[in-house]
Design a protein around this nucleic acid. Sequence first.
DNA 1: GTCTATAACTCGATAGAC
DNA 2: GTCTATCGAGTTATAGAC
Lengths: 190, 190
Amino acid sequence: MQNLNDTAHKLLDVAERYTQLHGFNAFSYKDLQREVGVKTSSIHYYFPSKQDLALNMTERYVERFRDALKAMARTESNGVRRIRSLAELYVEAVGQGKFCMCGMLASDMLSLPDVVNGKLCEFFRLIEEWVADAIEIGKEQNEIRHTIDPKPAAAHFLAALEGGMLIARTQKRPEYLESVVTEALAQMTH
Amino acid sequence: MQNLNDTAHKLLDVAERYTQLHGFNAFSYKDLQREVGVKTSSIHYYFPSKQDLALNMTERYVERFRDALKAMARTESNGVRRIRSLAELYVEAVGQGKFCMCGMLASDMLSLPDVVNGKLCEFFRLIEEWVADAIEIGKEQNEIRHTIDPKPAAAHFLAALEGGMLIARTQKRPEYLESVVTEALAQMTH
DNA sequence: GTCTATAACTCGATAGAC
DNA sequence: GTCTATCGAGTTATAGAC
């Protein structure tokens, strides 16, 4: 991903935003041309096919998200608050009318190459394990109940996060997602 | 919805399946022509625009789902088992590689008319209230903890259901959704 | 109601000059 | 790297005969 120049990154930025707002199949190279100021034929120079664009976009996104998770783990040692800071990212995105980029791609999975689907699985597994770690820490800090099994609880939390985002966006109510997160944490803590 | 003839219903059947598998913008009138055996121009006779198709499809879906919920409530008086029977529908759909139709439309909401979006909100509210009722009953039957507040807990459960479906489908693992449901119920019950 | 024929448009993608 | 020009295919939608 680091072997892409400035123009390529701008193209991925716009593609990413369109994907989160409208879906990957709902924007065209012409949209990128209009927003970045580079002709569609030049876009094909960077990404020969739209599937190449999908793969590069997803790889960059997952890479950045992994870094963001590491940073959050570094700056927040409290398990529950660590989970809350992840949820903040999602709430903020919904506030901008966006859905999770990988969630959006997941809904379009049948029209995307398998390698992209693999990246989506990697993304979800990544967050799941990060949340499981945070839950484990929360248990050690005696804030999360000892009856909670970190792994399935993390899968459950991630599912609620993705689904809550989808529903909150539909209803144009970011508070919906906040309420889902609050309830999720309430059920896990004492 | 009852004022549609047999051909119209067949068209909606196929449109519904395509939407759940690929998304509303990922199939064309030509796909319907191939599967139903009616020319695309005839499809426009029933549904002048594709947005009309979207609205009719969604209205019929919500109407049928409402009936299915009523039937489940009638045949199952146990709150927890009632919730489980709803989850069964979702698990079965994932087993067929499908996503929730309204969840799929929710991801395409920006390309759909507002009236469809209204139907999606109605759908989610419908399920949420149904689940809240089931939780209330589960509390009365002393299976669900008295500390659980039905309304936010129902929103949380619905979110986990939708998100779990999305992730399970991505990973081609219906068991993922089953595990999410099991965890959700475990956290709510004693 | 269903058909043939076609309009009008958009899409991803390529060739080749600079 | 970026451009102009264009191809071929796909899309929704309409007109009009039967």
